[in-house]
Amino acid sequence: MVVDDSAIARGIVTRTLDGEEGIEVVSSVPNGLMALKAIGNHEVDVVVLDIEMPELDGLAALPRLLELRPGVKVIMVSSASQRDADISLKTMTMGAADYVAKPKAGLGGAESFRAELVSKVREHGARDAKTVPARPAPAAVPAPSPPRKLARKLARPEVIAIGSSTGGPQALAEVLRDIDSRLTQPIMVTQHMPATFTGLLAEHMTRYSGRSATEARDGEPLKPGHIYIAPGGKHMLVERRAAGGTIIRLDDGPPENSCKPAVDPMLRSLAKNFKERLLVVILTGMGCDGLKGAEAAIEEGGRVLAQDRASSVVWGMPGAVAQAGICEEILPLQLIGPAIFRIAGGEAK
């Protein structure tokens, strides 16, 4: 489905996509209201959604489209610059799968824009060959297992690992802002996000947290108190050096849980290298990425916290670890930052 108030832009996007083998535009409409009406009448895998439109703009239509057709992939399109972190990260926070910026000169001769859009429609459409039916009957969700009781002596964590997805940018901002400034451990974050946005996310987290946050680079050492964001399109791992110290390794292996970067590879690598001195935090997100990595952390003696259902945008990832019974605590978002400092900021218990 293509949604854009400009008839010219809508026509160019529609013809571009319809001309590609394996892609069919089933609906082309001029605003968000018409998109909401049309999405129930068509099988839609991907929505290309303009942001600035009359009657109902893309920002207002996005959450309603996701509610009407859970699992649909929404690619936001706007005339705003790709470096506009506020707009781009807001849409990603709200559940958009991706974002493409319209060139200032218009779409007519913009081959790079059209190539990028086709590539992203293929990528996101291929992740789910079968469209999720609209308005599915709610499934019963088992209650989470009680928090894990730990009888062993607990080591003070040397590194904090955070995994997040849908709703993650907003949750990350709150958690990182609420961690006491005296915390000295490096913080490693894998947020499901395309390459265009992980650098913007790092800029955003620097502003919100008061700490230095950067997109991780291959070979750089872990520094106290620094926040490392896994770059889009790469898994973020760590490696212990024989001469001492730990460095970041970026891995170009296949996606895991349909994600790249994925949380599981990061957690497995950290568990192997830090063992009982690892604290894992799983925040809001769809799916179960992070579950196997958290289990690996527990096997090595690490500790796991999860966000609770009520404060999560989607309780998939934190719900998976909660229901597996491997969480030490299941907490509302506003208590996670203080809990991190309580566990990692004090002496070993």
Rank of each mutant, 00 (worst) to 15 (best):
M286Y: 02
F197T: 02
V132R: 11
F113W: 01
S6D: 07
G232H: 08
K130G: 02
A322W: 09
Y208A: 15
V141N: 01
I187T: 06
M92L: 15
P144Y: 01
P136K: 09
G244T: 07
L331N: 06
A294Y: 00
S88Q: 12
A97P: 00
E123I: 11
E276K: 13
V321Q: 06
K234S: 14
E55W: 11
P231T: 07
P144L: 00
R114F: 06
K272G: 10
G106P: 08
V280R: 02
A140G: 11
L201M: 10
K223A: 14
A195V: 11
D178L: 12
Y208H: 13
P254A: 13
A110Q: 03
D18P: 09
A195R: 14
A320R: 01
G287C: 03
I336D: 03
V26Q: 01
I298D: 06
R15W: 04
A243G: 10
G95Y: 00
L250C: 00
A96L: 02
G319Q: 04
V175T: 07
G58K: 03
L237E: 07
E329G: 04
E67N: 11
A85Q: 13
A137V: 14
D98L: 05
D4E: 11
A151V: 13
R342M: 09
E52W: 08
S81N: 12
A310R: 14
A9M: 06
N41K: 15
V26A: 06
I160Q: 05
A140M: 14
D289A: 04
K272H: 13
T93Y: 10
A140K: 14
P186Q: 08
G125Y: 07
S164L: 05
I326G: 10
K223D: 07
G293K: 09
D5N: 08
G244E: 04
A242D: 12
P157G: 07
E20M: 12
M1Y: 00
H226V: 09
T184L: 12
S28G: 04
H204I: 02
M205G: 02
N31A: 02
L66I: 02
D289V: 03
S145Q: 15
M188E: 04
T206V: 03
Q185Y: 03
A140H: 14
S6Y: 00
P138S: 11
S79W: 01
I227K: 04
A7H: 07
D180Q: 09
V238Q: 06
K292C: 09
Q323R: 15
V118R: 07
D84M: 05
K153Q: 14
P133C: 08
L154P: 07
T206P: 06
A161T: 08
G22N: 10
L237W: 06
E220M: 13
A243T: 15
N257C: 06
P194I: 08
L237G: 04
V13W: 02
R127S: 11
S88W: 11
G337E: 03
A213C: 09
V118E: 01
T16P: 01
A213V: 08
R303Y: 12
P133I: 04
G244N: 07
M317Y: 03
A101P: 12
V46H: 01
R241D: 12
K349P: 15
R207P: 05
V3C: 05
I51A: 05
E329D: 14
I87G: 06
A96T: 01
A155S: 15
L17W: 00
L291Y: 00
S212G: 12
P224C: 02
R127Y: 04
A294Q: 08
A216E: 08
K37S: 13
G163T: 03
R303M: 15
K260F: 10
S269H: 06
